[in-house]
């Protein structure tokens, strides 16, 4: 039982992170391998904010979200737009983006190392137990879970209930037709990319409440987000949320029943199994 609850608590943060990558890959069509670094940057920012001010890390969201939005917007405009303009087809764009953002991830790791050093960092926030069904759980995990759920729900409602959200989904479904209804695809993609980065960094803020991290941890989260997005199907945000919880559950199950060192290996095993059996993802459709 406690495995299921810890898995669900973890899954919500994963879901938030996956929604970030989903916006970047599903709408803007940019496979961003520097996604995990954005998450870690959010965690570092929160660490710095918390140790300096001792205010609740939730307040760090107020600064981190707009800052990450602006940084990712700039990355899209400066680095990605020239690649989009130059690419002759989607395949070439994908290769270019993977190389460019892979390079970018090293730059970001370098900046984080230079600013914060190479230490493992963590801080103590709400580090007391809360009892759910008689079992103790870290209150910080529960707080991060609730924060993630609220952000996920907000993002989901924004995407499904507002005109700009609908426009982003239209670009995701059929970018060629988006111009026919007067959607500026470049601008919509920049918005999706920036929003995706902001959501990912917000995931970092929440994760930092219970996680020990260092500058090189980003790539682990990039890979996790990648697994979730592929697992859930590239075009469906509900699939990604489902996949995030599956990954959270699978990781905690393996960590507590087999060996904590095997969590990432288990995640990949799951990933490969899905790729072999349902390459279109859990909720994805086979493209005709």
């Amino acid at each position: 039982m406690d495995i299921i609850i810890i898995g669900l608590l973890l899954g919500a943060t994963y879901a938030l992170m996956a929604m970030g990558l989903q916006l970047q890959y599903g709408v803007a069509r940019i496979m961003n391998l520097a996604n995990g670094e954005m998450l870690i940057a959010g965690a570092f920012g929160t660490f710095w904010f918390y140790t300096a001010s001792n205010a609740s890390p939730f307040y760090a969201l107020i600064g981190v979200i707009p800052l990450a939005f602006a940084v990712n917007w700039a990355i899209y405009r400066v680095l990605i737009v020239p690649l989009v303009r130059r690419a002759r087809n989607q395949g070439q764009l994908e290769v270019d983006c993977i190389l460019a953002t892979f390079g970018l991830s090293f730059i970001l790791v370098g900046i984080l190392l230079a600013v914060f050093g190479g230490e493992y960092l963590s801080y103590s926030y709400l580090a007391r137990p809360i009892f759910i069904l008689g079992e103790p759980y870290g209150l910080n995990r529960v707080a991060a879970f609730i924060g993630s759920l609220v952000l996920c729900l907000g993002l989901y409602l924004w995407l499904h209930r507002t005109r700009p959200g609908l426009a982003l989904r239209a670009v995701s479904v059929n970018p060629a037709a988006a111009g026919l209804v007067s959607i500026n695809v470049t601008r919509a993609s920049a918005l999706a990319f920036a929003l995706g980065g902001a959501v990912t960094a917000a995931g970092g803020v929440l994760l930092s409440m219970f996680l020990t991290f260092d500058a090189s941890l980003g790539v682990v989260f990039t890979l996790k987000a990648l697994i979730i997005v592929i697992l859930g199907g590239v075009s469906d945000i509900r699939g990604a949320i489902l996949a995030a919880f599956i990954l959270g559950l699978a990781e905690t199950t393996v960590a507590s029943l087999v060996d904590p060192g095997l969590t990432l290996a288990a995640a990949y095993l799951l990933f490969m199994a899905i790729l072999l059996v349902r390459p279109e993802g859990l909720l994805g459709r086979r493209s005709s």
């Binding site: 609908l166 989904r169 060629a176 026919l180 209804v181 075009s235």
Partner: peptide
């Protein structure tokens, strides 16, 4: 323009397609 391939958003609902038409 209604292009030859119709250019509609197949994974969205009828209503969403029509609302998107009023995006301009």
């Amino acid at each position: 323009l209604v292009p030859e391939d119709r250019g509609i958003f197949a994974d969205l609902t009828v209503q969403e397609n029509l609302i998107l038409g009023a995006y301009p």
